[in-house]
Design a binder for these strands. Structure first.
Lengths: 150, 150
DNA sequence: CCGATATGATTTGATATCGAACTATATAGT
DNA sequence: ACTATATAGTTCGATATCAAATCATATCGG
């Protein structure tokens, strides 16, 4: 069970943590919001530009445009974002957070904050820092490899 | 963008790495096999017991029984595993790897090995070791929290 | 100016995943 | 023995995700 190559084990652990952490996260989120949906709200609220194209958001979230179409559709149906035609480009759309979206986003933050100490229970601040550095290095290489391969 | 709590950033990186790594992995896998399917083949081949119940496999893979029903169904349809009634328990099933499944599993390993050096490109062996230790600590806490919460 | 190519978004069809409801069998408790 | 409860597996309806195909509009080249 532990005779796999180190790299294999790394991805196994990462996959499990993503699953466990994501599940805990969504359990805490109000109103049946999903991680993907919260991610979009969070992304939109952090941007200086009040409105972005679906493609830009998809790239930032590292998902395909097809996925983003579907997620944005659900958010729009709940009135959390507004999607309008881009006046500057007939093909494009522009997405912005509505007031309801911003309100719910803040509620999500509040709902999720209590989970954070859990990480502190596992790792000291120094360890978290260290881990973040390692994860970033790994992510950058994977990112580069992806751009190169297809 | 980086003013999130550390723990937040950790999970963000982990999510992205899981996505990028998983995508690269599945691109390398032959015959449109998925990570989930490969995981089951791999799990079955590593066990001393030649046959396991769906529930046991689901627990080992950290997914719900419902998910495993669906994945096993697809594997069985391709003849990679055999599913039979458990003679000792009228409710249960027993799953085992077929010869075709074992053959394909080995092909998967061969197809995927070339990806591993990618990790070495990002992290030294010592760093990988360190990271694995940190990931395991985090996973264990999340695992315990999950068992406690529901 | 127009045909060729590129780009933005959507649709379609597949897989994974979950929780909840359901079926069938097993086990416990009295 | 019989009812109550627990467990194994499946089914259902959502969501996320992707690749490929499609549609509309932009842009480029000549």
């Amino acid at each position: 069970m532990t005779d796999d190559p180190l790299a294999f084990q790394l991805f196994t652990e990462i996959g499990i943590i993503d699953q466990l952490g994501g599940a805990a996260f969504e359990r805490a989120l109000p109103a049946g919001l999903t991680r993907a949906q919260f991610g979009v709200l969070q992304h939109l609220s952090r941007r200086a530009r009040p409105s972005q194209s679906p493609g830009t958001i998809a790239a930032a979230m590292q998902v395909s445009r097809a996925t983003m179409t579907s997620t944005l559709g659900r958010l729009a149906k709940r009135g959390l974002v507004a999607i309008e035609d881009d006046p500057a480009d007939g093909r494009g759309k522009q997405v912005r957070l509505t007031d309801a979206g911003e309100t719910l986003r803040q509620a999500c933050i509040a709902a999720v904050l209590p989970l954070l100490p859990l990480v502190g229970q596992a790792l000291t601040a120094a360890e978290q820092d260290q881990m973040l550095g390692l994860l970033r290095k790994l992510r950058e290489v994977l990112d580069t490899a992806r751009d190169a391969a297809p």
